[in-house]
Amino acid sequence: MKKGILLVNLGSPDSPEPKDVKKYLGEFLMDERVIDIPYAARALLVRGIILKTRPKASAAAYKKIWWEEGSPLIVISKRLQNKIQEKVAYPVALAMRYGSMTIEKGLQELVDQGVEKVLLFPLYPQFAMATTETIMVLAEKLREEHFPNLKIESVPAFYNKPDYIEVLSHAIKKHLKGKNYEYLLFSYHGIPERHIRKSDVTKSHCKIDGSCCVTPSEAHEFCYRHQCLEVTRLVAAQLKLKEGSYSTSFQSRLGFDPWLLPYTDRTIERLGKQGIKNMAIVTPAFVSDCLETLEEIAIEGQEIFHEMGGNDYTTVPCLNDDTEFVELLSKWIANWGISKTELV
């Protein structure tokens, strides 16, 4: 049975122009696992309100970070794909959950090469409804409708795998070497609190009360908040960070429902007010730099910090196509089917 790999990232508009941004946002925000409210209410919110106002502002933000080669996330993801392909024997395709580089096209590319079994590799260290789950659900739907003879296996969240933590920690340490900083903020993409409760397989453990994420439970396998906090804990231990010199926050909230706390922008503001003059920030929910890291964190975050009296503000790049990260993913892929424990 010939095997192939499908790497899947979030996606991007085809251009930073409002019409393309509107199309992309429409697909993204109408996903029932992103905005998980009834269809009629979601359509009214997205098409009746958000898409009438947000595309222009989002397009302006994309224009700030757009590269000559195209969308940073797409360019970086392709670099990662190419470097992995050089190291593994399996065909490696790339797809995006949203946008024109569809999962259907990625699966078709592999099938056209004779692939009969696909390793679906969501490029997210942590599990979340709006990332890993929506990719897996769509891939299975497409398999049933268009590729009934194809077998698909999915890579689970790898947030706490020792070799991943080592690679992430080394990348952070390497980038911050010689840099002047007194505080390291771990910023993760935010999600509504209700997503945490919906993903709780026990239906009782996740209370988001400050203790559930550190109390052992099978719920942690699908708990985004626990997995983010665990990445921070493991990396802090690896880097021997002093207590009080780092913390976790969540960015990119949308709407008025309760989202995971504390918020990144308010945390940056608070740190500045508290007298922190030099800080660094890392975004471990993303493996590829994108709008949320290059504009929201690197540009807007820096502006907030400087307004609050801060001096040096250092952003740590995502793993992107870092050599050690490429080696790690290639190792996991090469071990697929040989020793599954090594993969997961």
Results as ranks from 00 to 15, higher is better:
Cys213His: 12
Trp332Ile: 08
Leu329Met: 07
Ser154Met: 06
Ala57His: 10
Ala139Met: 05
Arg47Lys: 15
Leu185Asp: 04
Ala95Glu: 07
Ala237Leu: 07
Ser217Val: 05
Ile50Val: 13
Tyr39Gly: 04
Ser199Met: 04
Gln251Val: 03
Gln251Pro: 01
Lys141Glu: 03
Val92Cys: 03
Ser187Arg: 03
Ile74Phe: 11
Leu150Trp: 03
Ala139Tyr: 06
Val155Gly: 04
Asp163Ile: 11
Val231Met: 14
Lys173Ser: 15
Glu230Trp: 03
Leu184Asn: 12
Val282Lys: 00
Asp312Cys: 14
Ala128Glu: 01
Val201Met: 11
Asp31Trp: 04
Phe305Val: 11
Leu343Pro: 02
Arg253Lys: 13
Ile299Tyr: 04
Thr264His: 06
Gly190Cys: 12
His175Gly: 08
Gly255Val: 09
Val46Trp: 05
Leu7Ile: 10
Val231Gly: 05
Met101Glu: 13
Lys87Leu: 08
Ile49Phe: 13
Asp312Phe: 08
His170Gln: 14
Lys3Cys: 06
Pro13Arg: 04
Asp36Asn: 13
Leu25Thr: 09
Ala334Ser: 15
Glu68Leu: 10
Ala157Pro: 03
Ile196Phe: 02
Leu234Asp: 02
Glu17Leu: 11
Leu123Thr: 00
Glu27Lys: 06
Arg197Val: 15
Leu150Gly: 00
Tyr181Asn: 11
Tyr24Thr: 10
Ser252Ile: 02
Pro16Ser: 10
Ser199Tyr: 00
Gln251Asp: 01
Thr202Met: 07
Glu218Asn: 14
Lys151Leu: 10
Ile35Tyr: 02
Phe305Asp: 07
Glu182Ala: 13
Ala285Asn: 02
Asp20Cys: 10
Glu342Ala: 15
Ala128Arg: 00
Cys290Asp: 14
Leu45Met: 15
Leu329Ser: 03
Thr134Ile: 00
Val167Ile: 06
His205Ser: 15
Gln85Arg: 13
Leu176Trp: 03
Tyr98Leu: 07
Phe121Ser: 09
Ser58Met: 14
Thr102Cys: 04
Lys22His: 03
Cys223Asp: 06
Lys207Tyr: 00
Ile333Ala: 05
Ala219Asp: 02
Ser77Ile: 12
Tyr159Thr: 04
Cys223His: 01
Lys56Val: 14
His226Ser: 11
Glu295Asp: 15
Ile135Trp: 01
Glu303Cys: 05
Ile50Tyr: 04
Gln85Thr: 10
Thr132His: 09
Cys223Gly: 10
Val214Met: 14
Arg253Leu: 00
Cys206Asn: 10
Met96Glu: 08
Ala334Tyr: 00
Thr283Cys: 15
Gly4His: 07
Glu133Pro: 00
Val155Ala: 09
Leu73Phe: 04
Glu133Ser: 12
Ile103Met: 02
Ser330Asp: 11
Pro317Thr: 09
Val137Met: 02
Asp289Glu: 08
Lys203Gly: 07
Thr293His: 01
Val88Glu: 11
Leu254Cys: 09
His306Pro: 00
Ser339Arg: 15
Cys223Asn: 06
Arg143Thr: 00
